[in-house]
Amino acid sequence: MASTTPTQIDQAPPVSKSARSTGRAGDKIFAGLSKGSGILLLVIMASIAIFLTYRASIALSKNEGNFLTTFDWNASANPPVFGIAVLLFGTIVSSIIAMAIAVPIAVGIALFISHYAPRKLAAPLAYVVDLLAAVPSIIYGIWGALFLVPQLAGLNLWLDEYLGWTYVFDKTQVGVARSLFTVGILLAIMILPIVTSVSREVFLQVPRMNEEAALALGATRWEVIRMSVLPFGRSGVISASMLGLGRALGETMAVATVLSPSFLINGHILDPGGGTFAQNIAAKFDEANEFGRDALIASGLVLFLLTLLVNGAARLIIARRKDFSGANA
């Protein structure tokens, strides 16, 4: 179609009937193609859900343990016994640690870039933070395992000594810091850029009049931020954090390299051990037989639904703010 129509249009004056009709045919095909690829995306999303559910149902029907409460993963054994309790716990705990560290720092960086940094430096500095997002996760992984883990030994001692009474920071096992806490720190570094860039966009959209009004009343810079910038940006920061959470939940390689996995639920986050959905899939995939793969797919389905939920909620919060356009990072 595309080979014939352009020449005809070039030769014929635009008013002639033939040109118009070919134009319309081309229009139909082009519109159809673009609509088709839009629909294709929806089909892909739907088929991800359908195929994963199908394989997962095969695995679940033969599972001897309880999928939600079993503390074990012997999917290749006979009879197969596996459960996601430990993985769910590890995924959520490491993501919460990551959020607790990353969100305040990211808000600080976003404020720095939007309100504090010298004007000429703001754009390059924003780019530097974006570079953090460009580093592949496997490189974060080996950096975390070979550099960060030994460096964190001292910090872990501190936390154990001064905050050990909180139970959470009580380090009960000796050993290197291949713990959920270290994973949380690494994930925090990895989700910083996305939380920062979305928050920064909202902070830049604060109506200037609000800020100037506060300044005119004699407010200091911090008071301006507390009174006009933060209230305006709150929903943006919430959705930015949820986007970050979505990333942290599904991160595979950084967790797989740093964590020394174990199938125990341990509330002492400084102790080595634990596991996450993605890490478990990466670690168990090679040795899994066909049924073991189905079991891993079942855990992948849970991860998929979890991220779908978090990301969907984040997007809905953003979508409620019609004027906000920086949500594509």
């Binding site: 995306l41 929806l42 892909i44 999303m45 088929s47 991800i48 195929f51 994963l52 199908y54 394989r55 986007l243 979505g246 990333r247 939940l249 599904g250 991160e251 595979t252 993605a278 899939i281 990466a282 793969r293 891993l296 797919i297 992948g300 991860l303 998929f304 991220t307 779908l308 978090v310 990301n311 969907g312 984040a314 997007r315 979508a319 949500a327």
Partner: peptide, 20 residues
């Protein structure tokens, strides 16, 4: 909406989908 949500798909889930 689903393009937005799709940005957040964990890479390992995309891998599992092609695997299935």
């Amino acid at each position: 909406f689903f393009v937005d949500v799709m940005t957040g798909i964990p890479s390992i889930v995309a891998g599992l989908f092609i695997l299935t």
